[in-house]
Design a protein around this nucleic acid. Structure first.
Lengths: 147, 147
DNA sequence: CTCGGTGCAAATGCTTTGCAATGTC
DNA sequence: GACATTGCAAAGCATTTGCACCGAG
C-alpha cells in the first residue's frame, strides 16, 4: 500500500464507518505518511504545531487511534508509560529488537515469526489477529565490539 | 528456582544492592510466590489489605519493581493502562496468547521462540537479554467452535 | 440541517514521589 | 546511629473526556 492508496483507504474506511473526513484528520494522516521511523503521539503533535497546524492534541490521539484501527499505523509499547507508532502503509511487516542501553530500534523481517505463530496457534486452537514480538538486549555499538 | 530459593535470592540481591530487607518487602514477596497466574499491582495490594496487611500501595509498587529487577516476577503490558505481573520463580519460561474478546491468557512454551530469537539476534549482532512475544486473537471458546 | 468533530482544559487511572516518622543493618 | 524505607496523599504523565461551537455530508 503506497501513500496514495493509504489516503484512499483511510477516506473509504472513515466514510464507511459513518465518520467524517475532516481537514484535521487529513493533516495528521499526511504527517504520519511522511514520517520515517518510529514516533510518539506527542512528537507528532508538536511537529504539527511548530509547522503552523492548529490541530489539537486530542485530535492527534483520536486520529492515531483511527489510523491504527484501519491498519495504516502500528502501535507499540516498547517502554513504560507511552506508546510509539510507525507507519505500516508501504512497508513490509517486521518486528523489533530494542537496545536497552541506547534505545535504538532494529527491525527484522518476520516471515519465520509468522510461520512459528501459525504452528503455535494451530496447536492451541487460537485464531491470531496480530502479534507483538520484541527482543530486548544490547546492540553491537553499545557492546563496543568491532564485529 | 523454588519458593525457598526465591526467598534466599531476593534477600541476597537486596542486601548486595545496599537495600534493606524489610517485613513489608517480605510480605509482598510471599504474596507473589503464593499467587497462581497473572495479577495486577493493585489486586495484590487489595489482597494484602483485605488479609490484614498494613503494606501501602507505594510499597507494593516499589517491591514489585524490585522483584522484577531480580528476576522473580515478569512484567507484561497486554492492554492499555496497566501492567500485569506473574511469578517467574519455579515456572518454565513461556509466552502468551491473549484473547481480545474475553481477555483469557493462554501460555505456551517457548523453546522454538528462543531458538528463533538466537538465529535472528546472531544475524543482527544483537545480544538478547529477554523477549516479549504476544499473540493477540480470539480463543476457541469465543469463536464458539466445538473443535 | 443534522450530528459527528474540534479545541480546550479538566479529568482519568496507573504509578511515582515528597516528606516526616520509623526501623534495618 | 545513619540512612534507606514506610505510609500517606499529592503529583506526574500519557491519554481520554465533557462541553460548546463548528462544519462535513
Amino acid at each position: 500500500m503506497n501513500e496514495q492508496d493509504a489516503r484512499k483507504h483511510f477516506i473509504k474506511y472513515t466514510r464507511s464507518s459513518g465518520l467524517r473526513v475532516t481537514p484535521e484528520r487529513l493533516e495528521v494522516l499526511d504527517c504520519v505518511l511522511a514520517w520515517e521511523g518510529h514516533f510518539e503521539a506527542d512528537s507528532l503533535f508538536l511537529h504539527l504545531k511548530t509547522h503552523g497546524s492548529k490541530v489539537s492534541r486530542a485530535t492527534v490521539y483520536n486520529t492515531l487511534s483511527l489510523l491504527h484501527k484501519c491498519g495504516i499505523v502500528s502501535r507499540y509499547r516498547f517502554s513504560e508509560g507511552y506508546s510509539q507508532y510507525e507507519r505500516t502503509a508501504g512497508r513490509p511487516h517486521h518486528d523489533h529488537m530494542i537496545c536497552t542501553q541506547c534505545g535504538k530500534i532494529i527491525e527484522f523481517e518476520n516471515r519465520r515469526v509468522v510461520r512459528l505463530q501459525d504452528v503455535l496457534c494451530t496447536a492451541q486452537k487460537f485464531k491470531p489477529t496480530y502479534h507483538s514480538f520484541q527482543i530486548f538486549g544490547v546492540c553491537q555499538t553499545c557492546r563496543g565490539e568491532k564485529d
